[in-house]
Design a protein around this nucleic acid. Structure first.
Length: 287
DNA sequence: CTCCAGGTCTCAT
DNA sequence: ATGAGACATGGA
């Protein structure tokens, strides 16, 4: 059976549970079943008995899997660009092998459009419902998987059908975004060609339901833009409680938080953000 | 039952 | 530029 050796820390379970991806199944300890590849239609069954152990490939193409898992990321070099402070140190110690995935563009865009004002279990539930109702069924061993529905499919089924998957007001946004992609009005290849982050963001925020936060998530998780720094309620808490705690009110505004994030955390700040986010969700109090 | 969730959009200063 | 409300649904 083929396996993937990582020369730097890698923790499959932590990576898949860190709020960047929502569809993977975990039928037994250490085993994960999901769909990957450019269009999210390539099944993979992976087994990692413990963090940093080799990843056994029970099913799937090793090259596609390696790319998806960020196998080529030089984690020590990436982490060396982070600021050295106690909060970063704690986050790195909590899950040293956390990696940023390379997700399918549309799947990532769509799931984060549905993510607003929902907790992670709810995002997963909506995502699974959409897949089961409108995705293509894929049988792999004893597992039945469903691809994330294409823009064409979601545009065709319409908003009402999407509401029945529990999307609420997000159905309007998802239906509109799907239509924009399906019609060719917005091209998800464009952000990949953009030089600067601002241009890449501008391509994505043309879509309904994609604001600055979702755009940064998509750039980070689907376009390997590790300089994109999503600021959600958790990251805002982290920065306000841990970094700007003593600052005057005037320096704790959204604009100041953004400015701090973009200058303090370095060129791989998106990566740093994911370590902080994952750690905070398990340790930080809501204040 | 109440509170809140990996926000965005609109419309008001 | 900055701030207040509305928005639908379900998990905790």
């Amino acid at each position: 059976m083929p396996s993937l050796e990582f020369s730097h820390p890698f923790d499959l379970a932590a990576t898949l549970a860190s709020g960047q991806i929502f569809h993977w199944e975990n039928p037994e300890p250490g085993t994960f079943v999901g769909l990957i590849g450019e269009h999210g239609d390539h099944p993979a069954i992976l087994h990692q008995p413990a963090p940093d152990a080799p990843v056994a490939i029970h099913h799937g193409d090793p090259h596609t899997i390696a790319h998806y898992l960020g196998h080529h990321h030089d984690l020590p070099s990436i982490q060396a660009t982070f600021p050295q402070d106690a909060h970063i140190a704690a986050a790195l110690a909590w899950s040293p092998g956390l990696r940023i995935l390379s997700q399918p563009r549309w799947e990532c865009t769509a799931t984060f459009i549905t993510s607003s004002m929902k907790n992670i279990p709810a995002i997963r539930k909506m995502s699974i419902a959409l897949r089961q109702r409108f995705g293509k069924e894929i049988q792999i061993g004893s597992h039945t998987l469903h691809t994330y529905p294409t823009p064409e499919t979601l545009a065709a089924v319409g908003e009402t059908a999407l509401r029945q998957c529990g999307l609420g007001y997000r159905a309007t946004s998802l239906a509109s975004a799907a239509e924009s992609i399906a019609s060719g009005q917005v091209d998800l290849a464009a952000p990949a060609h953009a030089q600067d982050l601002e241009t890449a963001r501008a391509h994505l925020t043309q879509l309904r339901g994609v604001g600055p936060k979702v755009a940064d998530c998509v750039l980070l998780f689907a376009y390997a833009r590790h300089d994109a720094f999503p600021i959600d309620v958790w990251v805002e808490r982290i920065i306000l409680q841990l970094y700007l705690a003593k600052k005057h009110k005037k320096n704790r505004t959204p604009a100041k938080i953004r400015e701090f994030a973009d200058t303090y955390f370095g060129p791989n700040r998106g990566y740093a953000q994911q370590f902080l986010f994952h750690h905070a969700r398990h340790h930080l109090t809501k204040k």
